[in-house]
Design a protein around this nucleic acid. Structure first.
Lengths: 146, 146
DNA sequence: TATTGTTATACTCTATAACTATA
DNA sequence: TATAGTTATAGAGTATAACAATA
């Protein structure tokens, strides 16, 4: 059942949301799939799949990590053949990164396998709870990128 | 506005929720407070504050980490004077951990300071969105511990 | 023998600082 | 000079494997 909670501004909401998010993130991190890609690498692939090729800097901004972290992530993906990495024609300091077709397939395969556990958990929820989750997921994304 | 989403079982909900959770967790981890405690340590203190003294093993189960990780976390908290660590009288293999009064205060202080950023973000949301968050937070906790 | 917890070690992810190459 | 990216290094946080002490 949906609780009727007063929509006051967040007496305990912030700490509760923080704790819940961190705990769930830790739990989700345990569901490592077999392909050896960490969350950061998957997230970069998903971003490239969705928004197309980007420079390393744009990727770092989008993923909200520092350039050295992105360099590392890209190096891993490159070594595994999941991205291409070409110097920009217009500004040769820049590096343009793009996803490879095989990585696109891996990404789809991953959506099927990697989310099995979570999907099973979600099936136990009430329709109202699923609605609430559908509403909240975009909010979490907004919070994450603000 | 609340979108009217069909409460079907989760075509894209699982991957979206996973990505959103991981991204928000990464963002939240950046909001480091001044007291030098990481999330794991704070979480242990919050658990002890809420549920009372526990053995190391019970703590590891509750926090869903492996025993060596909990040993480390407890060692940090002990060094900082935030917990006590006494061999169990009934079974001397076990170690009972409890929160100190000063850590209890620190925990409250932390709730005020550490959540400033998140609270500010939350204030920008619509009442319906806050309601949805209030509904979802307990669900995230359930998912995290299942 | 089985269980509780610790030690030793390693891996992942991220960061800051210093550097190279290009603009 | 300023910018894009890399290299070197370090710090959390977590894990597995091997061990010690107790049951």
């Amino acid at each position: 059942m949906l609780k009727t909670v007063p929509a006051t501004v967040t007496s305990d909401l912030a700490p509760d949301l923080r704790m819940a998010t961190m705990r769930l993130a830790r739990r989700l991190r345990q569901q490592r799939a077999g392909h050896g890609l960490g969350f950061g690498q998957l997230s970069v692939l998903a971003t490239l799949d969705r928004h197309g090729a980007m420079t390393a800097g744009e990727l770092a901004d989008h993923e909200q990590v520092r350039p050295p972290s992105m360099t590392r992530t890209i190096a891993c993906l490159l070594a595994a053949g999941h991205v291409t990495r070409t110097p920009s024609a217009s500004d040769r300091r820049q590096v343009v990164v793009d996803i490879t077709p095989s990585a696109r397939e891996l990404l789809q395969e991953d959506r099927r396998r990697r989310d099995q556990w979570l999907t099973v958990q979600l099936r136990t929820l009430e329709p109202e709870q699923l609605d609430a989750l559908h509403t909240v997921v975009p909010l979490l994304e907004v919070l994450a990128s603000s």
